[in-house]
Design a protein around this nucleic acid. Structure first.
Lengths: 189, 189
DNA sequence: CGGGCCTTTGACTGGTTTCAACTTCTGTGG
DNA sequence: CCACAGAAGTTGAAACCAGTCAAAGGCCCG
């Protein structure tokens, strides 16, 4: 049940069997149905999620009432709203399963205790965050330097299976274009 | 000389005097002149920089030959190009001082050794990265939900001293608008 | 004091949005 | 298992926000 997450961690740090057991005792597995929310605007984000299976989106409702997708998450990614998770303040974001999913949850109340017992996890999360952070920088780079069309073509080129996996209107929102315009781009070629 | 960085670290972790000395022995201070580069496109990013004084920009040259500012850094921020820093591959970015500056440099070759001797640093950088990562998410949120004008007004409102500090054409690039359009916004009110 | 870089101004252009109507898909209850 | 309602995707016309280009003015640094 926890094989996926243990395997991912072992790519970055080493863990003895005893440590694995200790770790697992701090984690919980959750089944999430399609369209179910793990976090809603106004709630405090209490958990950090490692996606074992399925697909999520982090989004918010803009001042104009529209949904804006900020980020997607798939297998072997951690996804949470760090601002609320760290501060304990209400979140401005929604976290929703796009498909029925299985996640491992790490509660913010036990994280510090766990990290004290397994200091390697500090390193693991440092490395995961370094990767996530530089991915965000690349994303900002693409947002500014590619047109909506170019970004869409790149997504299709680099992650064709992912483009199939999410509804078009969510992909359009993620790319910062309207569903109508994305539809036109698809028709064009 | 290292007071600024030690002070910043002590907000997140504790350090004995002996540990402080050990830490400092791994760090070097660099004076950087205005417009000087700490990293150029095609070079490997060998250091992570903590800004003691001054102001930097991380930028790249787009396929159309234009400079695109991806990020600014000021006092008490770490700035580096993590992708190259971690992988050892040539970077696609430039890191340049906007003002004459003083930084503390942490070399990628000694980082792992230092982290082994002072494991608290894993935690420190994890926390710094968590903050930086959620700041990037907010930035992406603003890029999509505010027009160029709204983003500019927000910058002026929230960071007026910063808007003064950087040339307009760099601010325009950071906001994803042209210098001409920013100039028009300023004239408008 | 001069030259080049930065900022401003204005006319024209175009990529993308908005709106509205229509078609296709999907899932839920009878 | 089918029917139907609501959700998702498509199409086309009109409008607009911001970009591009070009040229003039201002200002900083050598």
């Amino acid at each position: 049940m926890f094989a996926g997450i243990i395997c991912h961690m072992k790519k970055f740090i080493s863990l003895t069997e005893a440590e694995e057991e200790l770790l697992v005792s701090y984690l919980t597995v959750k089944q999430v149905k399609k369209k179910e929310h793990l976090l809603r605007q106004g709630e405090v984000c209490r958990e950090n999620y490692f996606i074992l299976e399925g697909c999520f989106r982090l989004y918010l409702i803009t001042s104009k009432g529209a949904e804006q997708v900020i980020q997607f998450g798939i297998e072997n990614w951690w996804i949470t709203e760090y601002h609320s998770y760290k501060s304990g303040l209400p979140s401005g974001f929604y976290l929703q399963a796009i498909e029925s999913a299985t996640v491992v949850a790490l509660d913010r109340n036990v994280q510090e205790e766990l990290f004290k017992k397994l200091p390697q996890l500090e390193k693991y999360f440092r490395l995961v965050l370094e990767k996530a952070y530089s991915a965000q920088l690349m994303r900002i780079h693409y947002i500014f330097n590619l047109t909506g069309e170019e970004q869409y073509r790149m997504m299709v080129d680099k992650y064709p299976e992912f483009v199939q996996r999410v509804p078009q209107y969510m992909l359009a929102s993620f790319l910062g274009i309207t569903p109508e315009f994305l539809s036109m781009l698809r028709a064009k070629k």
